[in-house]
């Protein structure tokens, strides 16, 4: 079973590097949104610093959401998902590998890019570790939750809007905690509590969402 998990990661990596455009898309979106804000709001350091936690998080959330629509689409269209469903391996393990690959190639680059953009918004350099921790814990939750919606809507012709409507309410707690931890850090308050909350949410998401994603895929494939 571990072997299949690993092989699926390799397969996803191959597919991703043969189509690098999709790798760059969410990153460009993330960078553009954040670069536009100082231009629109004005270059006041104090204001931008106050806004920066929310800005970084909203931009990251939208970038993840944007990349999710196509998560299972091509696998659905070329019949790969059917092969996963009829394979003797647990579907939950396969989808977990798929989402992990998706996060490694779209979520993780986002996290790595975020310090640069946060500095541009005037976030003090000593708060960068908190930013990284919050995004490292938060973006996988976004990917996992979004995959549930993507699995359910993959069979629909225009699932994009429905996916957004389904998933956004579930994203709100993550957004509040993620930007909350940065606000607290900016005010010099302790942040461990927020991060522990996000850690427990991530644990919960890793345990439960694969079951929901697998069920969603079975429904979509069985239609």
């Amino acid at each position: 079973m571990n072997r299949v998990f690993f092989l699926l990661l390799v397969r996803e990596a191959r597919l991703m590097f043969r189509r690098p455009g999709e790798l760059v898309n969410p990153l460009v979106f993330f960078a553009i949104v954040i670069c536009l804000f100082p231009l629109a709001v004005g270059p006041e350091t104090q204001l931008l610093r106050t806004l920066s936690p929310g800005l970084v998080w909203v931009a990251a959330l939208l970038a993840v959401l944007l990349s999710l629509d196509g998560l299972f689409r091509s696998d659905f269209e070329d019949g790969s998902l059917e092969q996963w469903v009829v394979s003797p391996h647990p579907l939950g393990v396969l989808v977990l590998a798929k989402v992990l690959a998706h996060w490694l190639f779209s979520g993780l680059p986002l996290v790595l890019l975020s310090p640069v953009l946060a500095l541009m918004l005037g976030l003090p350099a000593d708060r960068i570790p908190v930013l990284l921790a919050s995004l490292l814990l938060g973006t996988p939750i976004l990917s996992l939750l979004g995959a549930v919606g993507a699995a359910l809507t993959v069979g629909l012709k225009r699932g994009g809007i429905l996916l957004t409507l389904l998933i956004l309410p579930l994203y709100i707690p993550v957004l509040i905690l993620g930007s909350g931890v940065l606000q607290a850090a900016l005010q010099g308050l302790p942040t461990a509590g927020y991060l522990l909350w996000m850690g427990s949410m991530l644990t919960l998401a890793i345990t439960l969402t694969p079951l929901a994603i697998a069920a969603g895929i079975k429904i979509s494939v069985g239609e």
Partner: peptide, 23 residues
Amino acid sequence: GHAAGIKGLLTPEENLAWLTALQ
């Protein structure tokens, strides 16, 4: 099925290796 689970971006060898690994 109608669509055999073949990925256009992968080579025949990679496709087969993955599809058989599934089973």
